[in-house]
Design a protein around this nucleic acid. Structure first.
Length: 790
RNA sequence: GCCCGAGUGGUGAAAUUGGUAUACACGUAUGCCUUAGGAGCAUAUGCCAAUCGGCGUGCUGGUUCAAGUCCAGUCUCGGGCACCA
């Protein structure tokens, strides 16, 4: 077939019977209607831009399908190949369901608050608003260049006041119910820079900016009470259609422990409550240990020991996380105080040690060195008694108690580029919520974006903005008067902004609700959510908010994400993580503009391997996929009268089922096999229409072009099982489980076991293996296999 | 230390319910076409022997007519948590 094509084209060329576009290419490809991805892609992207085929509206009849990726942080560097993998997975599913005529919603947005924009602002004085605007424009342009089936009318941006107004509204709902609250907590603090530092800004116990030793400082911070939902968050994990890996990580993160709280009387009349998972070991409790930050430690310490304890406490607070991890040698000091073990009635000493954590349980433990390795280490070092006592009933001395590793979610950030917390303080420092009608609390404009010397965000520099009038009800007279207050200058953790955006997608321009109840009912919860990060943070926070807003009557479901696809990373060709400093970054836009086009890039990233595994970029394989798409297109040049009905139906089945299983790599492989077959046999119009339809989720531009040339719609094809059965069947003949021969029988004889075994035993190749006699024969109809045991 | 994953050709990987190991692609080799090829097309390609055949899914065993797949043990790599009482 190719030869004849070649002949014809050569002739045409020598007749001068057409435009020859490419000068340095003399042979058949240039003479045929040639695959020119950049041209085709521009054409179809213009059509999609104009006709908006992905614009979604609620309509009765067709079932809905809502899909999205984890919205990106629009960095200055633009899209990277990891984004492309993530977005393309969503796009393949979007188009797959669109072609099956489901009512599909696939929106897009930008997670724009964050440190890079703020650091850039501090360095250059450029407003983060401006940088963000430029970066979004670039991201949008690049996403459009990849041909994604996005409803661009639903774009959202978390730093848009129209958006963060509702983030603040969400905060106020949580505040009203006591789930947003202030608490003193220890934070990393640099005494030189006079600022709070995030964990990742502390390097080797020192400030990343000035190198001064950091310490822990008690500060008032805002928290969301996620622990209120710990039990439900844990319980509901079971029913989620999420990867087991993520479910396990969330379970571990929540870290439920069933135990008991037990009171110990201190000799000076006070009381210490400990948490233990082993209340049955209480007879072996030979001392108590308190965390250095233990509340009320001062009331327990004896006067003799006070100085030592205070020094130990100060040292412990200075210790960095890294130091704590590196040096696990037990340290601690005696408080000089004793408590009574309620089981043995014995007097036991009370210690302070940093191996006990203030944030877990009650910050105090009963040490049972006979049963607990850590307690034993401590006991050995400080020469404390180790008693192999008998076990008792679990609830004899304490009250049952469930404890979680998960802590409440600290949301205060001393940063400029975030959503302002809608709170103001009266002159006594009492917090008041900003009334909803005053929302949004806009981010003020400032000159300098650096945090100030009091450790407050740059918002504190906007003097006019700081003052606000809040209506206050007099508790005695009931009268309402306006009172001048000072605004909160901390901003919200960026994760707050992304904890509700999936609901905003349902009605992104609604200016009366955070999310429209009718739209929510129609579209949510999301059917497919795809990402490769945030296994415990974002994906836990969004579940927490969902349960809260369901309780408040704003959401008709308690789990926001039905199915989660967690994709792997794409590494550099050398197998290492891509990074600017290593100079091994592959820019997806370069791949496109080199002439491969978006379709090749998309299809390659689906073909690269299982979607949930990490993969290394291979530039040579990109070329292989490009060749494949070329071959698809070139088939249009030679449509003949033939019939590939069997392989066509097989391919429809395989590709359909593979996409349902997210086996995108094998779906592409099946299309390659199909094309190879069509090259061998020739292809008719139906063969090619099916090819284009099946190809469209992966290479939508090329497929659209093919379908236009073939004068066909894009409706997903169906297969017919009757074509999948061929007239003759191949029977595998094994001897002792090893393949030794194959025999061919007609389909009708598949029921006739006796005949098949007889054929197998008399097969020429088999005879020599079974001369010593046959012990038994097994026929498996389903596997079309005979096994002869000798 | 604890909890998850994963180990298959020269390479990325297939094998969906225990039933033909290595689909598809890359790479390589040879040929065709060509003034020319870093294009296109065709054929071959797990390893050893080069004829029959033997060996092959990290390793050692086990279950089974039959094991990449199930079981026990073990090694290596990757990820998560990490003094959570």
């Amino acid at each position: 077939m190719i030869k004849s094509l070649n002949e014809r084209c050569k002739q045409k060329y020598f007749d001068g019977d057409r435009d020859v576009v490419v000068r340095d290419n003399y042979d058949i490809i240039c003479l045929m209607d040639r695959y020119e991805p950049l041209k085709i892609e521009e054409k179809w992207q213009n059509i999609w831009e104009k006709e908006k085929p992905f614009h979604a509206v609620e309509k009765e009849g067709a079932p809905k399908m809502f899909l999205a990726e984890m919205f990106p942080y629009p960095s200055g560097a633009g899209l990277h190949v990891g984004h492309v993998r993530n977005f393309t997975i969503v796009d393949v599913l979007t188009r797959f369901y669109e072609q099956q005529r489901l009512n599909v919603l696939r929106p897009f947005g930008y997670d724009t608050f964050g440190l890079p924009a703020e650091n850039y602002a501090i360095k250059t004085g450029t407003a983060p608003q401006d940088v963000t605007r430029v970066n979004i424009a670039n991201f949008r342009k690049q996403a459009k260049r990849l041909g994604y089936a996005i409803d661009w009318d639903r774009e959202i941006n978390t730093s848009d006041p129209e958006y963060y107004k509702w983030t603040q509204w969400c905060f106020l709902q949580l505040y009203k119910k006591g789930l947003a609250y202030q608490k003193e907590s220890y934070q990393w603090w640099c005494p030189e820079d006079q600022t709070v530092l995030a964990n990742e800004q502390v390097e080797g116990g020192k400030c990343w900016r000035c190198g001064h030793e950091v310490e822990k400082k008690k500060m008032k911070q805002w928290f969301f009470k996620i622990t209120e939902y710990a039990d439900e968050l844990l319980k509901d994990i079971d029913a989620l259609e999420w990867p087991e890996k993520i479910k396990t990580m969330q379970r571990n993160w929540i870290g439920r422990s069933a135990g008991a709280e037990i009171d110990f009387e201190v000799m000076n009349g006070r009381r210490i409550t400990v948490f233990t998972t082993r209340p049955d070991t209480i007879y072996g409790a030979t001392f108590l240990v308190l965390a250095p930050e233990y509340q009320g430690l001062d009331f327990i310490v004896s006067d003799d020991a006070r100085e030592t304890v205070n020094k130990y406490k100060a040292d412990a607070l200075k210790k960095s996380e890294i130091e704590r991890q590196e040096n696990r040698e037990k340290t601690g000091v005696f408080t000089g105080a004793y408590a009574i073990n309620p089981a043995t009635k014995e007097k036991i000493p009370i210690y302070v040690a940093d191996y006990v954590l203030a944030g877990y349980g009650t910050g105090a433990i009963m040490a049972v060195p006979a049963y607990d390795e850590r307690d034993r280490e401590f006991a050995e070092k400080f020469d404390l008694p180790i008693v192999e006592a008998e076990l008792c009933d679990r609830d004899l001395f304490g009250t049952p108690k469930i404890t979680y590793k998960m802590r409440d979610w600290l949301i205060s950030r001393q940063r400029y580029w975030g959503c302002p917390i809608p709170i103001a303080y009266d002159k006594d420092g009492n917090p008041y919520p900003i009334p909803e009608e005053q929302l949004p609390v806009l981010i003020p404009e400032v000159e300098d974006y650096k945090p100030d010397h009091t450790g407050r965000s740059a918002l504190a520099k906007a003097e006019n903005w700081l003052k606000v009038e809040i209506p206050v009800k007099d508790p005695k007279t009931g009268e309402i008067h306006m009172e001048e207050m000072t605004r909160e200058t901390d901003t919200l953790d960026g994760y707050a902004c992304s904890s509700w955006y999936l609901w905003r997608y349902a009605s992104p321009r609604d200016n009366k609700h955070a999310w429209n109840p009718e739209a929510i009912k129609y579209w949510e919860p999301i059917d497919y959510y795809c990402g490769g990060d945030h296994a415990v943070a974002h994906l836990l926070y969004i579940r927490f908010w969902c349960k809260f807003f369901a309780d408040e009557g704003y959401l008709p479901f308690r789990e926001p994400i039905k199915r989660l696809l967690y994709n792997g990373y794409i590494n550099a060709p050398d197998g290492k993580k891509m990074s600017k400093s290593k100079g091994n970054v592959i820019d997806p836009l370069d791949v496109i503009n080199d002439g491969y086009g978006a379709d090749t890039l998309r299809t390659y990233e689906m073909f690269i391997g299982p979607y949930d595994q990490d993969a290394a970029w291979d530039p040579r394989s990109v070329g292989g996929v490009y060749r494949f798409l070329n071959r698809c297109y070139n088939l249009l040049n030679n449509i003949i009268d033939t019939d590939n009905v069997v392989v066509r139906n097989k391919t429809i089945k395989k590709v359909t089922e593979d996409i349902h299983r997210y086996n995108f790599n094998t779906a592409v492989a099946a299309l390659m096999e199909y094309v190879n077959e069509l090259y061998k046999n020739g292809a008719n119009k139906t063969d090619l229409i099916v090819l284009a339809k099946l190809l469209k989720p992966f290479a939508p531009h090329l497929a659209s072009e093919m379908l236009e040339k073939l004068d066909s719609d894009d409706e997903w094809p169906k297969w017919n099982d009757k074509y999948l059965i061929s007239d003759t069947v191949e029977i595998i003949v094994q001897v002792n489980g090893k393949l030794r021969s194959k025999i061919s029988i007609s389909q009708d004889h598949l029921e006739n076991e006796e005949m098949i075994i007889d054929l197998a035993l008399n097969d020429e190749k088999i005879k020599k293996y079974i001369s010593s006699g046959v012990k038994k024969t097994i026929f498996v109809k389903k596997a079309k296999l005979v096994n002869i045991v000798i």
